[in-house]
Design a protein around this nucleic acid. Sequence first.
DNA 1: ATAACGCGGACTATATTAGTCCGCGTTATG
DNA 2: CATAACGCGGACTAATATAGTCCGCGTTAT
Lengths: 179, 179
Amino acid sequence: MAHLTAGVEYGLHCLLWLASSPGTPLSSRDLAEFQGISPSFLAKIFPKLEKAGIVSASEGIKGGYLLARQPGDITVLEVVDAIEGRKPLFDCQEIRGRCAVFRERPPSWATKGVCAIHAVMLRAEKAMRDSLASQTLVDIAGDFGRKAPPEFSDDVRKWLADRTKSRTRNGAIEDGALS
Amino acid sequence: MAHLTAGVEYGLHCLLWLASSPGTPLSSRDLAEFQGISPSFLAKIFPKLEKAGIVSASEGIKGGYLLARQPGDITVLEVVDAIEGRKPLFDCQEIRGRCAVFRERPPSWATKGVCAIHAVMLRAEKAMRDSLASQTLVDIAGDFGRKAPPEFSDDVRKWLADRTKSRTRNGAIEDGALS
DNA sequence: ATAACGCGGACTATATTAGTCCGCGTTATG
DNA sequence: CATAACGCGGACTAATATAGTCCGCGTTAT
């Protein structure tokens, strides 16, 4: 699979919806169904975002998640690291020290500092991370907000509100969503 | 495992040794043993470099690989793509089109153009690739060449030459390399 | 003829990713 | 106070990718 995983994709999509619904906690289950992704998988992603201080959780019925900070203060890099745990782009195996002309232990000049190949990869990783760090949730949301017609955001609000209501005011145990 | 794989690492290390031994073909088996890596795995990497026009192969005993171009004309990005096959950093699943408020098929405004999240990832990937493209084998070799003492390059030449000779001039079936 | 070469395909083992399932303590509602 | 949905966490499974092995083929210098 790709280095930037589906978990990151799901997390970012959810954070954008949280950004568009400030003040109202959204549950991970609702967010999953709303976007047609796996609720149980999404449930494993949110605790990571919470530990990273990106979202804040409230428990119990009517609970859910809120953005813990302003969307403009949350970078894509933070989200990636929160979900994937800072995995490196490249895993140097120190081949340079295994050279056959080094009997037993390699000399210190050969293993001192960062391997030149590793250094190239670290620079590439830094370029990637800098790029991700330069974008916030606001930057991403802007693109989408400009494309959507005004009625859409009402439809979304309505869909999510209906979900929240069905948990408190009863009578919607059997709703219109058939298989 | 990491996105930039062990295959790339092995390939780059080998290419550096090829760059330091112009005109003399080196076999993938010798290169593997010289660096303490798996000969059979390395044997799967070189054909990819050959198809990409990075090395040229000669068959038969005394065969092996040569750099097909000047080391300064071979970028790290080319090597990565040759070995890994241009795998993307991120695999967009078009979550945006699955929104529950879209009954059946999503409207065209929602799926037109590149997903905003995907666009961020593509920019990050480009930053990474640009960084890799800016470095050639010469750039990497420079770092290492400066560190090694003069005697080292002689030792290497000797080790490799002994290997090549043991294929042509016989008498070295049992050499000093004990377990 | 031999031995080592590159080439390619089939195969295996291990790690990661994606996803499921279940049980716990919490909390608003009726 | 029972219920139902919530977040949390751990154990589990399935699919895929990576790393590595093995074997047989045609080629080529000795």
